[in-house]
Structures are given as structure tokens and as C-alpha cells.
Simulated scan of single mutants.
Amino acid sequence: MSRRILVLAAAAAGALALAACNDGSATTAAKPSAEASAAAPASAAASAKPSAKTSGSAKASSSAKAATATSVPDICKLMSKAEIGTLTGESVTLMTDDGGSSPTSRYCQWQLSQGQVTIGVTLETRGNFDVRNKQATPVMGVGTTAYSLSGHLYVWENGHDIDVYVSSESSDSANLSVARRAALQFIPRLEAASK
């Protein structure tokens, strides 16, 4: 999770530098931010979404205010060890959560007898979610919109950016299949817990 935050901060810093060179209008400052983020290399960017807290545009500022108005529930309470074991065919050896230090971003990680499953949720606007790396691959049939990038499945649903990472299977496509099934189970529970 900390690697993703660093990537987001770097993308936002680059966007701010490009915006400073612009004429200063809010409408033109947002476009270089999206282009700079989309051009980030896939190896350095698990996500190419700019952070609403660090962007200089008026739209992003209002997004940050909206994002802090709600909180993200405890992810570990929404999926059991037994369910993760059934999804992966592995035994869960350890379950770790983030401790709830942030009201707008939470994660839970299940260490398996072979591999791991991690689900993270961040409050995010649809506009920010739609700014993505050009190497992202759309994933149909899960959430309002979804894509895969660098072994992660990213799903947007009702103001939530859901990041599912699975490393228990023998191939990337098999891991994505498990991540997709996990997201389909998880999303309705997140929605119910967020009301």
C-alpha cells in the first residue's frame, strides 16, 4: 500500500510541475495532470490515478472534501479467512489489517500457505479513477468500471476504488480470475457496510 502512495505522490508532483508551466486556469491544469499520469511507466506505477489531496485543480479540491466526508469500513470484517481459503484453495496462515489509521483508505491482507490476497479500498471520484496508465486492460462484468494493471484488479463502485491483488495461482490470468471472483463477493458487502 505504501508503494502505491509513493507512486501517487510522484504522479501528483509531476502534474503540479506541468500545471505551473500552464496559463493557470483550472480547466487547462487538469488535462496535463491526466496526461502526465497516463504516461507513467507501468513498472513504476501500480496505479496512475492522481491524488485528489495533492492536485491543484478546483475539481480535485472538491473531490478531496467529498472523500473525507465518509469513511471506509474495516475490510477484514467483510471477508472471512474461510472465504479467502475457498476462493484460492489455500490455507490462510495470517490475516493483517491496517489498523484503521485512515478514514478514507483501508486494506486487509491474507497470507496463504502459498501466496497472498490483499484487498484495499480508497475513497475516489469516478473522474480520478478513469485516469489510468495506457497499459491498463479493461475488465468487464465487475463493478461500474474495472481494469487490471501490474497484477492488480482495480474496480470503481459508488465512490470506492477497490484494489484486489492475488498471488496464489500459477499464472497472471488465474490470479486475475480469483481477484475478479473476490471482488464480486466483496463489493455488495462493502456497499452494505458503507451505508
Rank of each mutant, 00 (worst) to 15 (best):
S170R: 14
G120A: 15
A11E: 05
A12T: 15
L18H: 05
E90N: 12
A17V: 07
S148V: 06
A29R: 03
I84D: 05
T118N: 11
E35G: 06
M140A: 13
A48L: 07
E169F: 04
F186T: 04
I162F: 07
T122R: 04
S91D: 14
Y147K: 06
S102R: 13
A66K: 15
L190A: 03
A183Y: 02
H160C: 11
S168I: 06
S43F: 11
H152Y: 14
S171I: 08
A60V: 05
S150E: 15
R126K: 15
S43R: 09
S33E: 13
P32C: 12
Y154L: 05
S102K: 14
G56K: 03
V142I: 14
E191T: 04
E169T: 08
L87I: 08
S91T: 14
V117N: 02
S57R: 01
I187K: 09
A13N: 06
F186L: 01
A60E: 06
N128L: 13
P32N: 10
Y107G: 03
R181F: 00
S102H: 10
G24I: 01
R180S: 12
Q109R: 15
S173H: 03
G141K: 07
A146Q: 05
A69F: 01
R189C: 08
T54R: 11
A182I: 04
E157P: 01
L123A: 12
S61R: 15
S2L: 12
T28C: 02
S167Y: 07
A52N: 10
S63P: 02
S113P: 06
M1Y: 08
K59M: 05
K195Y: 03
H152Q: 10
D74H: 08
L112W: 01
L123F: 03
S170Q: 11
I162A: 06
K49G: 04
G56E: 02
T118P: 05
V92R: 12
A52I: 01
A19Y: 02
A67Q: 09
I5Y: 05
G120K: 00
I75D: 06
A193W: 04
M95W: 02
A20S: 13
S167N: 13
Y154C: 03
A39K: 10
S71D: 14
T137S: 13
A39E: 09
Q116T: 10
K77A: 15
S105N: 11
K65V: 14
S150N: 14
P138R: 12
P50S: 11
S170T: 12
S62Q: 14
P41C: 09
